[in-house]
Simulated scan of single mutants.
Amino acid sequence: MSHSQVSRAPGRPNPAPGVMKLFPQRADPRDRRAPRIDMARIHAEKRKLCDALEAIADTLPSQVDRLECLKAAGELVPLLRECHRFEEETLFPAFLAAGGSGEVVARLKAEHVEDQGTAQELAEELFRIGHGQAVHNPEALGYLLRAFFESVRRHMAFERDHVLPATREEGEIPGRR
């Protein structure tokens, strides 16, 4: 079933289109906990990706698994794009509706932009390595990988500790029952 075929009750917002592809098992949108349930699933996928990137960094330069590089490279940009879309279209509005800070949301959105740029750079390099090319500068790549996955982990921790609790305490997402 394509995104355009997903039926929604009148007045109910459609989920972010990309999230439907990677995260088809969405929580019931009538459930006030749905954004937190979906966010837990998204964070689990991001944690798996961070773990895979850390494993690649740990094996540089001579023991790198080229198949794992290809797998991570193929998942990196689409996963982040879809996670960020969900956060920006669903989670952040709920946070703001619950009295959350616009400055916090602006900071998190800025981190999304930075992460997307770095993810694109990493994906290109991991594809190159996955296709058999040499690791030109293992120290620089290891540093970039570690800086990236640590930044993503910090971002998730902030959302878990500050954004999600605010949505839990304060009612439902606008447009949801």
Score class of each variant (00 low, 15 high):
S2E: 04
H3R: 12
H3D: 08
Q5R: 07
R8D: 06
R8K: 05
A9E: 11
R12V: 15
R12H: 10
R12E: 12
A16I: 03
P17T: 07
G18T: 14
G18H: 13
G18R: 12
V19C: 04
V19M: 01
V19Y: 01
M20E: 03
K21W: 04
K21N: 03
L22A: 11
P24W: 05
P24A: 00
A27C: 10
D28L: 12
P29S: 10
R30D: 13
R30G: 06
D31V: 00
D31W: 11
D31T: 09
R32T: 02
R33H: 01
P35E: 07
P35N: 08
I37T: 06
I37N: 10
D38I: 11
I42N: 00
A44H: 07
E45Y: 13
E45S: 14
K46I: 09
K48W: 12
K48S: 14
K48T: 11
L49T: 04
C50Q: 02
D51L: 14
D51G: 13
D51A: 15
A52F: 09
A52S: 14
L53N: 10
L53K: 05
A55T: 06
I56W: 02
A57K: 11
D58G: 06
L60Y: 05
R66W: 08
R66K: 13
L67F: 04
E68R: 14
C69S: 05
K71E: 09
A72C: 15
A73Y: 14
A73R: 07
A73N: 09
G74C: 08
E75A: 14
E75K: 13
V77R: 12
V77S: 10
P78V: 14
L79R: 01
C83A: 15
R85M: 15
E88F: 02
E88V: 09
E89Q: 14
L91T: 02
L91Q: 08
L91H: 04
F92R: 08
P93C: 14
P93T: 12
A94Y: 00
A98N: 10
G99W: 13
G100F: 15
S101K: 02
S101H: 08
E103F: 12
V105Y: 04
R107T: 07
R107P: 12
L108Y: 09
L108V: 01
K109M: 09
A110I: 13
A110C: 12
D115T: 03
G117V: 02
T118C: 01
Q120A: 12
L122Q: 06
A123S: 10
E125Q: 09
E125N: 01
L126R: 04
F127S: 04
R128S: 02
I129Y: 03
I129K: 03
G130L: 11
H131F: 13
G132F: 09
G132I: 01
A134G: 06
H136W: 01
N137F: 11
E139V: 14
A140F: 05
L141Q: 09
L141I: 11
G142F: 05
Y143W: 10
F148V: 00
F149V: 14
E150G: 15
R153P: 00
M156Y: 08
A157G: 11
F158E: 00
E159P: 07
E159I: 05
E159Y: 00
R160H: 11
D161L: 10
D161R: 06
D161K: 13
D161E: 10
H162N: 06
V163N: 06
T167M: 15
R168T: 11
E170M: 07
G171Y: 00
G171F: 11
E172P: 06
I173L: 07
I173H: 03
R177L: 03
